[in-house]
Amino acid sequence: MGRQGDFIHMLREQGYAFDPLRSDQAQSVLSHQDMITKGTTVLACKYQGGVMVAGDRRATAGTSVMYDRTDKVLELDRFCVMAIAGVPATAFEMARVLEHSFKYYRRSQLQDLSFEGKLRALAKLLKENAPAALAGTGTVVPVFAGFDQEQQEGKIFFYDILGAEFEGVDYAVSGSGSPTIRGILHYLHRWGDRPLYSLPEEEAIVLMLRLLSSAAEFDAATGGINFESNIFPIVKRITEQGVETIASEQLKQLCASQVVRHV
């Protein structure tokens, strides 16, 4: 089986179980929902050069803020990222499994896993994780964004907790703060000065920052922009050159000039 480049299969042969918190064992955990870390806003949107992906930095458990510097936009390889919403423990583990699977496939089969193959790999993990997702201990609702090298275009996909995969043609959102910005994206895309996919890079970054700031306004589990502690959202651009993180200095400057009380 190893000869087919299936890393997850190899892990299982070694006794690794991806889903230790199955629903049948998770009953007692339900009463401890407040202790489970979750709450987020992540989004991806097409722009002129490819796809822009962003996420806030906050991790909450119940009403406590656990951490304010989380990176929820995880690079799986040079051309794709998974922006995570839900339980970080499960999501980080999924990202780790996928990152290793893609590398193992490329190195053993001497060719890159296709874009569709990568999407399926994530969907399979989510499906396997469904019992934990339903029990509330392992809910993960990711946005997958990447540059499809074969078709030479950026693509965005989103999932439900059971692993169903949907293509977000122009944008996709996820997390507790996402309902707020979904409406804004729809409005801007349809009636704005121009469709979102034709935005130049800087405008796309500003849009991401304003949207996350709006989400934080209405959702306590989403962290906004924190000048005092120098904490800005994570913004990454995916182009035909691959994934690049927008430097926090640039974000800081754009926040100051175009996000904080712009008018």
Partner: peptide
Amino acid sequence: RFQVLDMAHLEGF
């Protein structure tokens, strides 16, 4: 090569 790949990736993971 496969032996080395398996060993490296399991260890890395």
